[in-house]
């Protein structure tokens, strides 16, 4: 059978068993092509048209006009490029802070502590509550008029309008909520990684007189490589594409838009003076794709390098 490699081992007896792997593979691959790959390729095609997404509306081929408008036209390109940079900033900050905090929490909870399960559960709870409940909780928590965070700020002599105020702080609060909501996943993945480390390694190093930092650097960190890689990739890809919290917490507010939200807003008529511009939105999402691709590629290289270095 041509389709199978020579190393395929199973059942030469009947035709059915020979075809079985192919037939069972087909549903998964078919779904993947239909739902992910096909539409993604179609997005590329869309991005060269003025499609509105309305049934019956004519679709014209307009070449690179959407890209030209997104990247180069007037001042709106500045706003779009700002949104692109903001997406990057969001991703970098979320990835690194969430990674670090998740690691710290995991290290703390990997000790023999009373109430360990309680803390672990507590930090994981936002994950299961979902983005809407997370958002509502924090909107309430960040009420500028007498909310809890406002009173904390007050004791330090500070004042902030939080989500309703300046775009800078509002954006940063979304970062805070994003990390608050997802650090639980990072933490448990690290915890699981730490559980797989052979304790004899620590014993041996202690006998050699290694201190806490030494132990972490020479044993925990390299041994955690699979967990680190998983977290790293999950955080990067997740944060580059995450924008639902922006929708829930801020709405489409000038100075806080990220690319994912921009695609949704342009394609599906959100915003102040909506018109339906799915072609333009498709171009924006291709820009987002290229961004994720480049960053993902670099991250993947780094992850592979780490794996080769530490895991052989």
């Amino acid at each position: 059978m041509a389709i199978m490699n020579k190393n395929y081992l199973f059942g030469s007896s009947s035709k059915w068993t020979r075809y079985a792997p192919v037939m069972l593979l087909v549903p998964g691959v078919f779904l993947y092509i239909m739902i992910a790959l096909g539409p993604s390729l179609a997005t590329t095609v869309y991005s060269f048209t003025d499609a509105s997404g309305l049934r019956g509306a004519p679709v014209n081929w307009i070449g690179l006009d959407n890209y030209d408008e997104f990247l180069f036209q007037g001042a709106v390109s500045r706003d779009n490029i700002d949104a692109t940079l903001r997406t990057l900033r969001f991703s970098v900050l979320v990835t690194f802070i969430q990674f670090t905090l998740g690691l710290i929490l995991a290290l703390l909870l990997n000790q023999k502590l009373r109430g360990r399960t309680f803390f672990r559960t507590l930090f994981f709870i936002p994950v299961i509550l979902g983005v809407v409940i997370q958002g509502l909780m924090w909107k309430l928590f960040l009420q500028p008029r007498g909310g809890p965070m406002a009173s904390i700020f007050e004791t330090f002599g500070l004042q902030s309008e939080f989500l309703g105020g300046l775009p800078g702080p509002a954006f940063n609060w979304v970062i805070v909520v994003q990390i608050w909501a997802n650090v639980g996943v990072t933490m448990v993945i690290f915890l699981a990684g730490m559980q797989t480390i052979n304790t004899d390694l620590y014993e041996a190093a202690r006998i050699d007189g290694a201190g806490g930092w030494e132990l972490f650097r020479s044993i925990t960190w390299p041994q955690l490589t699979p967990a680190i890689n998983t977290n790293f990739l999950l955080n990067i890809v997740g944060s580059l594409q995450a924008w639902q919290l922006f929708l829930v917490l801020l709405g489409y507010k000038p100075g806080t838009q990220v690319l994912g939200y921009l695609v949704f807003a342009e394609g599906f008529g959100q915003g102040d003076s909506p018109s339906f511009r799915q072609g333009f939105a498709a171009a924006a999402s291709i820009v987002l794709f290229l961004l994720v691709l480049v960053i993902g590629f670099v991250a993947n290289k780094y992850v592979n390098w780490r794996e080769e270095r530490y895991m052989g």
Partner: peptide, 18 residues
């Protein structure tokens, strides 16, 4: 088309602090 977001200064009241 191509005007930046601040061109809609009729919304300007919403752009001042706070």
């Amino acid at each position: 088309t191509g005007a930046g977001q601040w061109a809609n200064a009729w919304q300007g009241a919403a752009w001042f602090a706070p």
